[in-house]
Amino acid sequence: MRNAVLLLAVLPALWACPVNAPDLTPIQEEPGAAAAVLLSSVNVADPQAEDQLLDGFHGLENGAWRWTMRRFAVALQPPPPEAAPEPMFLEMRFTVPEIIARRFGGAKIMAKVNGRALAPESFEGQGEFLYSQEVSAAVPGGQPARVEFELENAVPTGEVDQRELGVIVTSIALQ
């Protein structure tokens, strides 16, 4: 009985432990109504580029990469016309992980830039890959581009994870 009383006496003391205190100010306001600054090259780990990940990107992992869903999209600012390379390419650095390679043999990627479809590209087996397609005709100068990707296959929600899993992306760029 005495032991139980001693143990119960310890618990209220823990209440004041700093772990239980709110640890953050709740929100971060925009510095002002500044115009959006979009990048032409998005590293998915870059906090500045986070708002350009429009759809289908899961949380950042190991501070370096993100899983995608079957469909994912990103906003990219093409380089200014005077600095635009000719031809211009859409490039994505990504990894086909073992689980995807084992199930589907690799990944087939279809992409659209501002609604215009690019040629699909297939990647066999697992490993790191570079997706690269010419996009000069699809990207008008100055306007942000919506780049949508679609995978032929993805692991559905609930099979190995509560998330739908496509490929692992590290960066996407117009260059």
Partner: peptide, 24 residues
């Protein structure tokens, strides 16, 4: 507001400027 981190981060202006890219 963007809720991907511990703190909510306001992105109203950013969002408005990229509405067409985001929503078509």
């Amino acid at each position: 507001y963007n809720a991907s981190q511990a703190r909510l981060r306001e992105i109203t202006s950013q969002y408005r400027a990229t509405l067409n890219v985001r929503l078509g």
